[in-house]
Amino acid sequence: MASTLTAPALSAAANAGRTVPAPVALILNVQPSNTAPRAWFERFVKHVTTFGFQQSRSDSSLFIFKPGHSMAYLLLYVDDKVLSASSTSLLQHIIASLRTEFAMKDMGPVSHFLGIHVQRSATGFKLSQTAYAVELLERAGMVNCKPAPTPADTNPKLSSEDGALIKDASWYRSMAGALQYLTLTRPYADQQVCLHVHAPRDSHTALLKRILRYIKGTTSLGLHIHRMDTLTITAYTDADWAGCPDTHRSTSRFCIYLEDSLVSWSSKRQTTVSRSSAGAEYRGVANAMSECSWLRHLLGELHCNVHKATVAYCDNISSVYMARNPVHHRRTKHIELDIHFVREKVALGKLRVLQIPSARQFADIFTKGLPMSLFEEFCSSLCVGETTAATAGGC
Results as ranks from 00 to 15, higher is better:
36 A>Q: 14
38 R>E: 08
38 R>Q: 15
39 A>H: 13
40 W>P: 07
41 F>W: 11
41 F>A: 10
41 F>H: 15
42 E>T: 09
45 V>I: 02
45 V>D: 14
46 K>V: 06
49 T>M: 06
50 T>Q: 14
51 F>K: 11
51 F>Y: 15
52 G>F: 04
54 Q>E: 14
54 Q>W: 02
55 Q>I: 01
56 S>C: 07
56 S>N: 07
58 S>W: 01
61 S>G: 13
61 S>N: 14
63 F>R: 01
64 I>W: 03
65 F>E: 04
66 K>Y: 10
67 P>F: 08
67 P>E: 13
72 A>E: 06
72 A>L: 03
72 A>R: 04
72 A>M: 04
73 Y>A: 06
76 L>D: 03
76 L>I: 15
81 K>P: 05
82 V>P: 01
84 S>E: 09
84 S>H: 01
85 A>T: 12
85 A>L: 12
88 T>M: 11
88 T>G: 12
88 T>I: 09
88 T>R: 11
88 T>W: 06
93 H>D: 15
93 H>C: 10
93 H>M: 13
94 I>D: 05
96 A>C: 09
98 L>W: 09
99 R>T: 13
101 E>R: 14
103 A>M: 10
104 M>C: 15
104 M>T: 08
104 M>D: 14
105 K>I: 11
107 M>P: 07
109 P>K: 08
110 V>T: 12
111 S>L: 07
111 S>I: 08
112 H>K: 14
112 H>T: 09
113 F>V: 12
114 L>V: 06
116 I>N: 08
116 I>W: 00
117 H>W: 00
118 V>A: 01
120 R>I: 04
121 S>N: 14
121 S>I: 03
122 A>P: 00
122 A>C: 10
122 A>Q: 15
123 T>F: 06
124 G>W: 02
129 Q>V: 02
130 T>Q: 14
130 T>C: 07
132 Y>F: 12
133 A>K: 04
133 A>V: 00
134 V>S: 08
138 E>Q: 13
139 R>I: 00
140 A>T: 05
141 G>I: 02
141 G>E: 01
142 M>W: 03
143 V>W: 00
144 N>E: 15
144 N>F: 08
145 C>Y: 02
146 K>C: 12
147 P>G: 02
147 P>D: 02
148 A>M: 08
150 T>G: 00
151 P>Y: 00
151 P>M: 00
151 P>V: 00
152 A>Q: 14
153 D>Q: 02
154 T>V: 04
155 N>I: 01
156 P>L: 05
161 E>C: 09
163 G>F: 07
164 A>T: 11
165 L>W: 00
165 L>V: 09
168 D>C: 10
170 S>P: 00
175 M>L: 13
